[in-house]
Design a protein around this nucleic acid. Structure first.
Lengths: 219, 219
DNA sequence: CCAGATCATCTTGTCAACAATGTGGATATG
DNA sequence: CATATCCACATTGTTGACAAGATGATCTGG
């Protein structure tokens, strides 16, 4: 059930802000409200739903500031992870990573963008797994899980797929055991992701005059 | 109630491995089992208690590998945090940090080690708060919360207080806006913490022969 | 005397009902 | 006519009891 709701949010089948009423979910999944409550608590802790006391649960709508902080956290975590992988990865691991990037490219090449994006995200997870640090890997998992929600809430126009070229370059740096280059590439890659999401304020101090297209004195 | 149990674990009043039975806690705090269950779930997510299905909750006993991963994660997170603080901190913030370190030193000087350790930990939290990234700050909070448990489970001999000199040097680097020096100092500082905990395997493949002081053929 | 299986007991997981709180609409009033 | 208040409804938070699973002792057989 947790995975079902999580998947629905990640696949953009549940829009941000959608209220998640306990009774509806309970009868929908054929379970009691208690377990629904438990699942919602877990989703809340993963920041996929927002829980406000006495006011129910809703699919999270990450603010711009929050989104930027998530990307900044990704930079910190993934730089450390990729550096460690570059330090310790074996040839077989590198080969598997390369295969995976190829499968990404294949997915995009045949036009299956959904599968491509999923594989691109999984690339980051696999990289994290190779680092052999469960703590950082879990943080990364949480952060990448929040990313689709951010994309939906603040995307400009493009669907923003993970650039495969970046991934390929990363694998090359890892294969060359070039720790610092790998970290720099990762930093750049996450910068690309963030830029592709058009994460600038959508007109942040969005004045009312601008919205209604008239001067404040007008009336 | 969450804070009560959390505090008890952090203050070493609840030893690792202690079983936390739901009914006991329920009648102890005068609440229902449902809320106990919710609290335990939260503690489990914070990795302060270990939750095994149908087998109850117990105060977590972090393994050596896990402990090392926590410190590695702290390096990644805190380096990023301190670098950002060095980039953006204002003079007033730096002054307050300096005051805080002074209060640490005062606590140690008057022999109040418990208060000193608490203030030392809080130094890291305050630093995190100054960085202005709620995501990373929360990760840091989780990581430092796990540290006392690690200390209790694997400490060598010393109680391992946070070295105030390290903190002072960090503040100096921040004041000088020297991002890379601050990061390096932080890395070193966490290294000191880890070393002080004597986190090497306590004799990890601890052979039985070693334990009983006789050769395996002996009998 | 020891090993394995059985059963009582305890603990956790789940459920349905009760109480408390927030929400929206209808009503009264300046 | 706009605003503030009150009330009914809906939703969440909490409680107690029931069912499923695990733990440990007892009992039987070798």
């Amino acid at each position: 059930m947790f995975d079902a709701i999580r998947g629905a949010i990640l696949d953009h089948r549940l829009a941000p802000g959608t209220k998640l009423r306990e009774v509806s979910l309970a009868e929908l999944f054929g379970v009691s409200r208690a377990v629904v409550r438990s699942v919602l608590a877990r989703l809340g802790h993963a920041h996929l739903v927002e829980l406000r006391p006495h006011r129910g649960a809703a699919v999270a709508t990450p603010s711009l500031e929050e989104s930027r902080q998530v990307f900044e956290a990704r930079r910190a975590v993934e730089e450390a992870l990729v550096a460690k992988v570059a330090r310790s990865a074996e040839a077989r691991d590198v080969a598997r990573l390369r295969e995976w990037v190829a499968s990404e490219q294949a997915a995009y090449a045949r036009g299956d963008e959904r599968d491509g994006v999923r594989r691109s995200v999984d690339f980051h997870r696999r990289l994290a797994a190779l680092a052999g640090n469960a703590v950082l890997a879990r943080y990364l998992d949480e952060l990448v899980s929040r990313t689709p929600l951010i994309a939906l809430a603040h995307r400009g126009s493009a669907p923003a797929p993970c650039g495969c070229e970046d991934h390929l370059a990363l694998v090359d740096a890892i294969a060359a055991r070039d720790e610092s280059r790998a970290a720099a590439l990762m930093r750049a890659h996450i910068g690309h992701l963030e830029a592709a999401l058009n994460l600038r304020p959508r007109t942040p101090p969005q004045s009312l005059a601008e919205v209604f297209g008239r001067a404040p004195a007008g009336r």
